[in-house]
Write a protein that binds this DNA or RNA. Structure first.
Length: 267
DNA sequence: ACCCAGGGTAACT
DNA sequence: AGTTACCATGGG
């Protein structure tokens, strides 16, 4: 295992905030505070000590820099968003969030599972999906690929307790496996074309498509409208989103989502 | 028992 | 084009 150390500037990377803000569901925190996951088939372990983060993995440095979006200074987003008072308050509490570049198929299936569901249960279903159909890598399981899932039936998926979403998982896996939805091609598509292609999958509407476009393809103009963001926009942005969000609405959305969700818990 | 959760589909006006 | 019941499951 190779180790890589990075120094954080301007408090713009916090492992806990990044992994637990709702963009991903598979990073596990151990007793020591380290976070681990299998990403694109290989293990990654991360440890944070103040402004230093250690990343341990067999992935290349290039892969990791891309996955964690290390070339981007998120304090520039925060400066930009500070023109709006609501957004400024949201950024203050979550300055260490970074938007990851996750594997598209995993992101697609995960957000299909997320619909009309809550985060603890989403994590449970995905854990059972990986344990049942993924491959064991050390202490964890990989996310099953489209070929593996497309060979399954709804009865096979019943133990996941994903309910009506099982049909959607199978439609997505089938379309991806048959090449009807070429997930690689979306990297080179504009936002609208990528969204249209994703929405040909049964069970993928505007919100799920936007989550995939933002959290896998890093298309920052995607603005996922979940129940929280609907409430927030109705209360604070009824006359439209603030100018300062620009083409980075998706990043802004994540600060808002996390801020209001945290507040609702009474923290 | 009722309501909600990082919604979408199908069947209506 | 815009509304609405319904969809499994589990926690509060």
């Amino acid at each position: 295992m190779k180790k890589m150390k990075i120094k954080i500037k301007n408090n713009n990377f916090d492992l806990k905030q990044t992994f637990l803000c709702g963009q991903c569901f598979r990073w596990k925190e151990d007793e020591s505070g380290a976070f681990s996951a299998i990403v694109s088939g290989k293990s990654i372990k991360t440890v944070q000590n103040g402004d230093e983060i250690t990343i341990e993995s067999d992935h290349t440095r290039e892969f990791l820099e891309n996955y964690f979006d290390l070339a981007t200074d998120y304090s520039e987003y925060i400066n930009r968003f500070s023109a709006d008072p609501t957004l400024k308050a949201a950024c203050d509490g979550s300055h260490g969030i970074r938007i990851l570049r996750q594997e598209p198929f995993e992101t697609l299936i995960s957000f299909i599972i997320s619909q009309n569901n809550n985060i603890p249960r989403i994590i449970g279903i995905i854990d059972r999906l990986c344990e049942s159909f993924g491959e064991k890598r050390g202490d964890f399981y990989s996310f099953p690929d489209a070929k593996t899932l497309s060979a399954l039936s709804e009865a096979d998926l019943a133990p996941l307790r994903a309910g009506f979403r099982c049909r959607y998982i199978l439609d997505a896996a089938g379309k991806v496996n048959r090449g009807e939805v070429d997930l690689e091609s979306i990297y080179n598509m504009d936002y609208e074309s990528g969204k249209a292609l994703l929405k040909t999958i049964v069970g993928v509407g505007d919100k799920v498509a936007d989550c995939v476009l933002l959290f896998a393809y890093h298309k920052t103009e995607a603005f996922p409208m979940d129940v929280w963001i609907k409430r927030i926009t109705a209360e604070y942005y009824s006359s439209g989103l603030p100018e300062c969000m620009g083409e980075y609405k998706g990043i802004a959305q994540q600060y808002l989502f996390e801020y209001f969700r945290k507040h609702a818990e009474g923290k």
